[in-house]
Computed example of a mutant assay.
Amino acid sequence: MEIARAFGAKGFTVAMIARNAAKLDALASDLHAEGIQAAGFVGDLYKPETITAAFTSVKERYGAIDVLEFSPVDQSLDAAGLRNWTLNLHNELKPHNIYVAHLTISAWIGAGHPDAAPDVIARAYTDLYETRTEPEPHYIALDDAQS
Rank of each mutant, 00 (worst) to 15 (best):
I51G: 02
D115N: 08
V100K: 00
I105H: 08
E49I: 04
H96K: 12
V58F: 05
A101R: 01
R123P: 13
A111N: 11
I65D: 10
T133V: 08
A80T: 09
E49L: 11
S106D: 14
I51L: 15
E130C: 14
D127I: 02
A122M: 07
L87H: 01
D66Y: 01
R123D: 15
A79R: 03
E134R: 02
P114M: 07
Y62I: 01
P95N: 07
K59S: 15
Y125P: 07
V100W: 05
L89H: 06
F70P: 07
I109T: 03
Y62P: 01
T131F: 15
I65G: 08
E49C: 09
N97G: 12
R61C: 00
V120C: 13
V73S: 14
A53H: 08
S106R: 11
L45P: 08
F70V: 15
L89R: 03
D78Y: 04
L103A: 04
D127S: 15
P72L: 04
Y62L: 15
Q75K: 04
L87T: 00
V73T: 07
T133P: 00
Y99R: 05
E60A: 14
R132L: 06
L103W: 01
S106G: 11
K59Y: 11
N84M: 14
L82A: 13
L89V: 00
A39M: 11
L77K: 06
G81S: 08
K47C: 13
A101F: 12
F70M: 14
A53W: 06
F70E: 15
G40N: 03
E92Y: 00
P72N: 12
L93F: 10
D66T: 00
P95F: 07
L68E: 07
T104V: 06
R123W: 10
S76W: 11
T133H: 03
A116C: 05
Y62E: 08
D78H: 04
R83K: 13
T52N: 05
Y46A: 15
L77G: 05
E69M: 08
R61Y: 01
P72W: 07
P72T: 09
L128N: 14
Y62K: 02
L45G: 14
L103F: 02
N97W: 01
P95K: 06
F55Q: 08
R123Q: 15
H113Q: 06
L82D: 09
T104W: 06
G63M: 07
V120A: 12
G112S: 04
H102R: 00
D66M: 03
T56L: 02
L87I: 08
D119S: 12
L89I: 00
T56A: 12
P114W: 05
Y129T: 09
W108M: 11
L45C: 15
A124Y: 07
N91E: 11
E60Q: 10
D44Q: 00
Y62G: 02
E134F: 07
E69Q: 10
P95S: 10
S76C: 09
E49Q: 13
I65N: 08
N84L: 14
T56N: 03
T50H: 00
H90S: 13
F70Q: 12
P95C: 09
W108Y: 12
A79F: 10
P114R: 06
T104R: 05
A107W: 01
T86F: 06
P114S: 09
Q75R: 05
D115S: 12
Y46C: 13
N88T: 01
I98A: 11
A111G: 08
A79I: 09
A64F: 04
I51S: 02
A117E: 13
V100C: 15
